[in-house]
Design a protein around this nucleic acid. Structure first.
Lengths: 336, 336
DNA sequence: TTGAAAGCGCTAACAA
DNA sequence: TTGTTAGCGCTTTCAA
């Protein structure tokens, strides 16, 4: 490790006053040209722009926020950016935010309620203009946002949350899509691997699965509840194996779980889709390169992200909600 | 979509003055207690704290930044948070930053140099206290940061970059580890799937592979250059297959590529590790649940993240660098 | 132990 | 078309 003391010329960033001085105009004029907020004569503007370029001036956003009372920044809280579904969602939200001239700050709660509260607090301290919340629980504590009148939209939310705007995929429909497809392959007995969240409210995918089974006159396969990640899926697989009851078809509530399940099956020499057909849920990158590639119920992530940001910025108010229909993304784990 | 107009009481957040008024002290005293910057009598402090609690006051961070000339925020730029390696790295950096009392803003360049430049610009406008840069190129343009004297550390960097602090894993050593392990399994002919970056400088993993082959007196297998993602790995696999030259062992420069390669092999009925033994690189979550689970050269991600943040904050200056030795993470794709 | 006041860089209302 | 000025919420020096 080489080490040379930094020269550190301690040259502070140029301010608007520096620009004004160099361009021989008043500071206000600099603002006018930067924000295009008022007409300025072409010659003056040229001088100012040149000075800006020479000094490498960029408006100090803290000062701007303070003055404007708005940070032009959105906050987003997810359980885990390491999860490709949330990573994709966050990325799409970032894109949508930029498109609307906003910045996005993303925080990870790691599934901890304590961390979630802390981050939300943090967002309010930063005076974000709104927060997109993928909470680990069904009824998140958004009081600190409320107290400061910061708009919230619950993203990836599962069901009605009175008094809060929320957006989510139609989980029930998605589950139905999966079961119907599996039934279309001739399977009459379909199991379920379902994720549980901290406050274990019943997941709508469970209801959708159940409903579809009934409607189609099928037989209920085993149901196993596990965490929403690969490890959970792996455990589900082990359990099914241990019970000696791996059904011919399985709907799995997230792609990551499905990936874990796949591993358990491979280890046991159970062939997918020949011995078990599998349909996952989410449609992010996870299942694209798995073996076999995962048939999955894809959420319209980009659309949801865009809508969430629009809702947030256009301030549609609380009690707004929107549910998006997912679509079946057919690959090979279903037997197609 | 239900819709109810927002009540929007338009209640602005409480300021320090509100607290001062309620606690019947001067605004300065509020600052004293919030920042513990000066002794305050216990009774006064109690009054102030109570007022803070009652009003839900949190210091406006824009104002604070403006006054302090520091945002207590670090910026991090990665090509793609959707990639689990970068997601993990970013997450670890976030943790390290929080540990040092800093916030982290993460931006995605999507591998575009244009986006990279824009984000860097953005970071300087926001006056971040430093930026951690995972650039898509070997010599990134950090002039906008330089102009404002914002410290930079190149993270995940591959080789010497004079005048900039950088941190990276020892790629050459990692490649050697992989080849040696494969040789230990008795393979005498080892191929290479190597990623290319935008400015295609020779990757040190290539050199390490080559070197190890020579040292061990092995035979050079096919070398294929592809993008650093799953698709690249898949293409590499297809090409090897098309050339009819799938070597008995293969070192692959990233886990994501390895995942893609795995798919190509499965599709062709080539068995891993029996027909090809594979060792990947990175050691993030990708290969943990693949089939077969991936043996890989793991970078000490957490350690690198922590060091990068420390370096940044403690301002060790430019021309500092640190290279971390990776370790072999043995799973099953190598034949173990 | 507490308070008064200056000023961080910026926007925008108003005046010239 | 341009300039003057007040003030956003905060920290900190200096005085009381």
């Amino acid at each position: 490790m080489a080490r040379v003391p930094a020269p550190s010329p301690a040259k502070p960033a140029a301010t608007r006053n520096d620009v004004a001085r160099l361009a021989r105009v008043s500071p206000a004029v600099v603002s006018y040209v930067v924000n295009r907020s008022k007409r300025v004569s072409p010659e003056t503007e040229a001088r100012v722009r040149q000075a800006i370029a020479m000094l490498g001036y960029r408006p100090n956003s803290a000062a701007r926020s303070l003055r404007l009372g708005s940070t032009e920044t959105l906050g987003m809280l997810v359980p885990d950016t390491t999860n490709s579904y949330f990573a994709t969602l966050a990325h799409q939200v970032e894109l949508a935010a930029i498109h609307r001239g906003r910045d996005l700050i993303v925080g990870n709660s790691d599934g901890s309620l304590e961390a979630e509260r802390r981050l939300l607090d943090h967002f309010t301290a930063r005076r974000v203009d709104g927060v997109l919340l993928c909470s680990s629980v069904f009824r998140p504590d958004i009081s600190s946002l409320r107290a400061d009148n910061i708009p919230v939209v619950l993203l990836n939310h599962a069901a009605d949350a009175p008094g809060v705007a929320w957006i989510g995929a139609d989980l029930r429909l998605g589950a139905r899509l999966a079961v119907e497809h599996l039934a279309g392959h001739g399977h009459r007995r379909i199991g379920l691997v379902i994720g549980t969240t901290t406050d274990d409210v019943q997941d709508a995918r469970h209801a959708g699965w159940s409903e579809a089974i009934d409607t189609l006159g099928l037989e209920r396969g085993p149901v196993v509840s596990v965490g929403f990640n690969s490890r959970g899926g792996y455990e589900a697989g082990r359990q099914l194996l241990a019970d000696g009851d791996v059904p011919p078809a399985l709907f799995v509530s997230s792609d990551r779980q499905a990936i874990g399940l796949l591993l358990a099956m491979h280890e046991a020499g159970v062939r997918v889709p020949d011995d078990v057909a599998i349909v996952g849920f989410d449609g992010a990158e996870d299942g694209e390169y798995s073996w076999p590639p995962l048939t999955t119920v894809a959420q319209p992530i980009e659309q949801m992200a865009r809508t969430a940001v629009d809702l947030m910025i256009d301030g549609a108010g609380d009690d707004v909600n929107q549910v998006f229909p997912p679509t079946l993304l057919v690959r090979r784990s279903c037997g197609c």
